[in-house]
Design a protein around this nucleic acid. Structure first.
Lengths: 230, 230
DNA sequence: ATCAAACTGTTACAAGAGTTACAGTTCGTA
DNA sequence: TACGAACTGTAACTCTTGTAACAGTTTGAT
């Protein structure tokens, strides 16, 4: 790994929610034990197979994660950006992988094998605690998504999902989501037609502004009202 | 804690997926550091407040877990039986609780505070690893539920949910789910009417047999076909 | 044995999403 | 500049679900 890449990787780890409160030296060892993987558009970073059964930390680029559903369907779960942890320590979660991640931009991932994790844990046992930390964060996000889908009607769900997507974005006054209506529909189990109809209604109400492949959220409180169906 | 209760607790921990591969001594310390909580029907075991911010392990009884969704709704997530971990180490997941658990039978829970966890971790750092383990398991289950809800239509979803519920049961030739159609609907975001209609269709097709407050799965492969919408 | 509570089966109507198909835009590339 | 790919806007129609209301059944407690 070249010095520049190493520096970038360290800064991404240092800024990530799940590692930022742990010792610098632990992050450095994770980087040193890890291996940089570069993937092009369309390539998969999946956590199956032997040598690739550890963690992947997204350093640069963007991926979409999919989850297998009954009947050989793939459901898009969400967009994955820098700082996110992908894959899982199979020793715990054993069995089929949870999500399949596909690159939508050329991406750089830090791969940390289970063996490497064990070596880090020998010096820093608290690394398991950090891992428990992001596992919790994943659970929280997933649970929230499931609760949304179960309880909300499509119109409310669309509003809730837009807000959730905006939360992950760097903070701006007017968040802009770069996502097609097609993909949005796929993520929520709705057809593009349905998404489109509601988005146009939102636009007429001044809540959003629609562009080509992007959605501008102009009225966050208004969207929250709809998500809460009040 | 009386000796009998202590023995029961140890055996539940020893049989649980997430602790069974860890040292007996670690489980014993968890029991010793923990505190037994007895709850009656209708009482809540929720992971908020200060002294109750640690983990709860269900030793006996049964609870239903609910998740808060936007708009002050509560979605029933699932039934919780002995051996399951509830609540969460708030240091990680901070913010509002993930689930609210309500007793449906008189239950006994082992409460392990964060401070107690820290004490256990001083001797057994791998306890964090065990915690990461069940957090993964929770994520896997939740993700699967979300993927089901997103991708499957109601009829397929009902079949998939019946099968998933049967998996958690002790293995029998003909699994019998003790759950009302009302509750089933609440868990899946469908009305009782919809559930009822599909269940009757399943019964006519010989896939299930309906009883008062119970559903007998008579043809697992057939249900799988429907879940996969083939 | 009786009664109330909980649960299941059924109806009719209205609202909403899915399907399919086509036309008009925007974008990147040759 | 011209072209094709990807994306958005729109329409007619069908099918399913939600809503609301009511009757019949089972269960468990008094």
């Amino acid at each position: 790994m070249n010095p520049h890449e190493r520096k970038l990787t360290l800064s991404v780890l240092g800024a990530s929610d799940w590692l930022k409160d742990y010792p610098e030296a632990m992050r450095a060892q994770l980087v040193d034990e890890g291996r940089m993987v570069h993937l092009g558009i369309g390539e998969w970073a999946q956590a199956e197979g032997d040598d690739r059964s550890g963690l992947f930390i997204v350093i640069d680029g963007a991926l979409h994660s999919y989850c297998a559903a009954p009947g050989d369907r793939a459901v898009m779960i969400g967009a994955v950006a820098a700082g996110t942890v992908l894959g899982h320590a199979t020793r715990y979660s054993g069995g089929p992988r949870l999500v399949t991640a596909v690159c939508v931009e050329p991406s750089a991932l830090l791969e940390i094998s289970e063996a490497a994790l064990d070596r880090v844990a020998a010096r820093f046992p608290e690394v398991w605690r950090a891992i428990a930390g992001f596992a919790y964060a994943h659970t929280r996000r997933t649970l929230r998504m499931a609760a949304e889908v179960i309880s909300l009607k499509p119109r409310e769900r669309i509003a809730a999902r837009l807000l959730a997507a905006a939360e992950g974005q760097p903070k701006e006054d007017v968040p802009v989501l770069r996502i097609s209506q097609e993909l949005l529909g796929e993520m929520m189990g709705l057809t593009r037609k349905t998404i489109n109809g509601h988005l146009i209604a939102f636009e007429k109400a001044g809540l959003v502004r629609l562009g080509y492949g992007e959605i501008e959220l102009r009225n966050i409180p208004g969207l929250k009202l709809i998500a809460n169906s009040e």
